[in-house]
């Protein structure tokens, strides 16, 4: 059993396990699945006069708790249930990334871009600091992230969510095919 769990999980196991949380949260307390709301709650904790953050962040305590759980789950997933094999990405992706100068495929993320040592390098700043900023700005502008729009929103047949998801992919493709070759 533990050996099975230690393998990477296939999509047809992981996808349904993620999707089932949407009705679970609704049935539990009428809550809607949306991770990026937490970034707004964190802003609302700050002493600020910005109108968008003038509400009681404690209304989102359930969601912040869930977010904290994700950190713990990440730790458990890797320390208790993990294996040390590299991510089994397709050969085509490996070749594309090698051509861009990525050589370390041993971890979850390439250490050339995501490490404290490389944080102050040009690419490190762009991938981590600018990338993070765009995620936080874009998700609130769009009113949701992958969880709120791509999963909850599409599940509720919301046209705005479809528009947002098309935007997610447009942005992702622009970054992958135009920005990455420029930066790396």
């Amino acid at each position: 059993m533990i050996e099975f769990i230690s393998q990477p999980w296939p999509w047809y196991v992981a996808g349904p396990l993620i999707g089932i949380v949407v009705p679970a949260l609704l049935l539990l307390g009428g809550k809607q699945f949306g991770i990026s709301e937490n970034l707004r709650h964190m802003c609302a904790m700050l002493p600020t006069k910005v109108e968008f953050f003038q509400y009681d962040w404690k209304s989102g305590l359930w969601n912040l708790t869930l977010l904290f759980g994700i950190v713990i789950g990440g730790w458990i997933g890797t320390n208790w249930l993990g294996n040390s094999d590299p991510i089994a990405i397709s050969e085509a992706t490996r070749i594309d990334l090698l051509a861009l100068g990525i050589t370390d495929f041993s971890g979850l993320v390439p250490s050339e871009l995501f490490s404290w040592e490389n944080l102050s390098s040009g690419p490190g700043l762009i991938f981590i600091v600018l990338g993070g900023f765009l995620v936080g700005f874009g998700t609130r502008y769009a009113g949701g992230c992958t969880s709120g729009h791509a999963i909850s929103g599409l599940a509720n047949l919301q046209l705005p969510s479809l528009l947002a998801v098309i935007g997610f992919f447009a942005g992702g493709l622009i970054a992958t095919f135009f920005l990455l070759p420029l930066i790396l």
Partner: peptide, 24 residues
């Protein structure tokens, strides 16, 4: 939706993570 979504997508591809996975 499309403008915010596109900005989010740029960040998603750069960081390789949407908000939940960042914490994981």
């Amino acid at each position: 939706y499309w403008m915010g979504g596109t900005i989010f997508g740029l960040g998603w591809a750069l960081t390789g993570a949407c908000p939940g996975p960042m914490f994981a």
